[in-house]
């Protein structure tokens, strides 16, 4: 799994690629936690190039989202497709996160 971050005017966009599994998911949490420590509170996660996510990945997404909610931050998800979208649907995760078809739509929603 690889992550690329890009600072936009109102949020940091984190693009994840590859596989988010039981081994790699903690890296995602570490990355978001580090950005929060630096003062960021608004995130867009870009799933365009993520091929695979298991329950360990969902656990990491949920943990960071809970933390951000407590600190009045926000996190939006963009561009879920294929198997990753299916995993969100069957776990009911699609209904608890703010989901968008594009990164730009997510940035608009953050405002």
């Amino acid at each position: 799994m690889e992550m690329q971050t890009k600072k936009e005017a109102n949020a940091t966009v984190v693009a994840i690629s590859g596989r988010m599994d039981a081994v790699t998911a903690p890296e995602y949490e570490k990355c978001i936690n580090a950005l929060v420590t630096e003062g960021e509170s608004s995130f867009v996660i870009d799933f365009t190039s993520l091929d695979y996510i298991s329950s360990a990945g969902l656990r990491a997404l949920l943990a960071t989202a809970k933390k951000l909610k407590v600190s009045s931050g926000q996190i939006h998800f963009a561009c879920l497709t294929g198997t990753v979208k299916e995993v969100f649907d069957i776990s009911g995760f699609a209904s608890i996160f703010k989901m968008h078809d594009s990164v730009s739509a997510a940035l608009v929603a953050i405002g």
Binding site: L62, A65, K69
Partner: peptide, 20 residues
């Protein structure tokens, strides 16, 4: 079967692996 309905703060991850 796991909880797939509660909101973000109450959501538990247990059982999701078996669900998959």
């Amino acid at each position: 079967e796991p909880d797939t309905e509660s909101d973000i703060m109450d959501r538990q991850i247990g059982g999701l692996g078996v669900h998959f």
